[in-house]
């Protein structure tokens, strides 16, 4: 376990806490893509099937349980605060992402078994799952600051996994090509957002300094 992975995991954890905090304090699901959040439930459930047959560490188990339970809780919260009358910006055809991830999982996997295909599927789906959320952000125009912090923390998590993989390559001499390529894809999906975030949030904060 290296510093990049720990920071990445913490960033992932914080992103979910920000999201839960934002939705429960405003009692509103506005600006949050239910499609993206539902996709994360599928991501975590399909990836963490190994909870049943592989023990890595207490940390690993607790984090997996946290991600599964919190993602389901978020979908529950969003459904509770969703107003049917509201005009929805959550229009991205999410089934393309599911379909594409499934095809990629059939092509790129370490073994043609249900568990391995679902594991690969979860990585590909995760790498593009934020797209409906980015579409909502783009269509809404003005976003809540917390929403942008949430997306940033979530993007930072996979970006931090990249130095983690480089570090592991040099220290352990091993590489997981599916995780690495899908992880890089995920970071590319975020790159446009990172740039806008930097321009709007980071520069504005600096601007306020005396």
């Amino acid at each position: 376990m290296n510093i990049f992975r720990i920071l990445g995991d913490i960033s992932h954890l914080i992103s979910i806490l920000i999201l839960i905090h934002a939705v429960s304090t405003t009692k509103s699901a506005q600006g949050i893509s239910l499609k993206t959040q539902a996709a994360y439930v599928v991501v975590f459930v399909s990836r963490y099937l190994d909870l049943f047959f592989r023990y890595v560490s207490l940390y690993n188990t607790l984090m997996k349980l946290f991600f599964i339970v919190s993602s389901i809780y978020v979908v529950f919260l969003l459904n509770r605060y969703k107003k049917n009358s509201e005009k929805t910006n959550d229009i991205f055809p999410v089934w393309y992402l599911f379909g594409g991830a499934f095809v990629f999982a059939l092509i790129f996997n370490y073994e043609f078994s249900i568990v391995e295909i679902l594991w690969s599927f979860s990585l590909w789906l995760e790498s593009v799952a934020i797209i409906p959320q980015l579409v909502v952000l783009q269509r809404t125009g003005e976003a809540q600051l917390l929403t942008t912090h949430y997306i940033f923390a979530l993007g930072l998590y996979r970006a931090l996994y990249i130095p983690n993989w480089i570090y592991r390559y040099y220290t352990e001499g091993r590489m997981d090509k599916i995780a690495v390529i899908s992880g890089i894809l995920q970071t590319i999906v975020y790159s446009d957002f990172f740039y806008i975030y930097y321009k709007k949030v980071v520069k504005n904060l600096k601007f306020k300094l005396p």
């Binding site: 992975r5 995991d9 992932h12 890595v56 993989w165 001499g173 590489m175 995780a179």
Partner: peptide
């Protein structure tokens, strides 16, 4: 390098 899945990651 060896290609080994990172099943210890999240």
């Amino acid at each position: 390098f060896k290609v080994i899945p990172f099943k210890d990651e999240l």
